[in-house]
């Protein structure tokens, strides 16, 4: 049976111990700040990046995944005798990423590559990838791994509180969430991201925002008859709010797995400093 290797983009923000553990190949997204082009996670780490963003007059942007690097990663797996599962962020929010993967696939037609749309962003991608990686480790066939990934995708959602909507707006991904803009009151908009960005509501304080997110998860779990959840809580320099969310989630849902981490640079580009949120997979 063919072995399988996973390729993804750095936007998932998967921590390096996990990348090593599962042998995932991560392609860094190019980040452009002013005239500087930085490779996410290689030339720059989140803390340093947040400092740079603070100082810069310009808003950061991301560029498409380099096709050449994707193709190289595919080939590298082929040389190890593996087929490739190229798992990427929601094509609804970045068709360019899918395009890059597709073009890279065409470049190395001798490699067996399956491109998989996780329909997620940041931590949500990680949740779906880890489910697939575990299935691969268990020695499941490609079809079975894909089935696991599809199910994980179906059952994963992501909520994020964005104190500064400007970042999402600049990235051109605000979609319907634009209704959250322009209030005279200090509010923290909350969005859900799965294929599209939709507004979930607003909080007036981090605690209120957390309550809203927890409430949304609760009704989501109820409507799906959930047995449990796995989640990733992440933040861009807002450990306080994220920490509170973690405590609330632990208390109310007793998750099977829960981690707290920083959002990667690429994620920060689109969600902005001080944002935080949760990706959760319903079991």
């Amino acid at each position: 049976m063919t072995k399988i290797g996973i390729v993804t983009g750095s936007v998932a923000g998967i921590p390096s111990p996990l990348i090593k553990e599962y042998g995932i190949r991560v392609i860094p997204f190019p980040i452009i700040l002013g005239r500087e082009a930085l490779r996410d996670g290689m030339d720059i780490q989140p803390k340093e990046f947040l400092e740079k963003v603070k100082k810069s007059k310009e808003f950061p942007k991301t560029a498409a995944l380099p096709i050449g690097e994707l193709a190289e990663a595919y080939e590298a797996f082929m040389k190890e005798g593996k087929a490739v599962l190229s798992m990427h962020m929601s094509s609804g929010l970045s068709i360019a990423t899918h395009d890059s993967a597709q073009k890279a696939k065409e470049m190395v037609s001798e490699v067996e590559v399956e491109i998989f749309d996780t329909e997620q962003i940041i931590g949500g991608i990680q949740l779906v990838i880890l489910e697939a990686a575990r299935a691969i480790r268990k020695g499941k066939s490609k079809e079975e791994v894909l089935k696991v990934a599809r199910k994980a995708r179906e059952n994963t959602n992501l909520l994020r509180a964005l104190p500064d909507l400007e970042y999402l707006y600049r990235g051109g991904r605000i979609g319907k969430a634009k209704v959250l803009m322009g209030s005279l009151m200090k509010v923290i908009p909350i969005i859900a991201a799965k294929n599209v960005i939709t507004p979930v509501g607003k909080g007036r304080s981090p605690t209120q925002a957390n309550e809203k997110m927890v409430g949304t998860i609760k009704s989501d779990m109820e409507s799906r008859g959930a047995k449990g959840i796995k989640c990733i809580i992440e933040h861009a320099d807002n450990e306080e709010a994220a920490g509170e969310l973690k405590r609330m989630v632990e208390e109310r849902f007793h998750p099977e797995e829960i981690t707290l981490r920083e959002t990667g640079c690429c994620g920060i580009v689109h969600t902005g400093p001080q944002s935080w949120g949760i990706a959760y997979l319903i079991k």
């Binding site: 094509s91 068709i95 899918h98 993967a101 597709q102 399956e114 491109i115 749309d117 894909l146």
Partner: peptide
Amino acid sequence: AIVVGSSELAK
């Protein structure tokens, strides 16, 4: 028009 995927599953 963009169609990606495999021979079993096309997005």
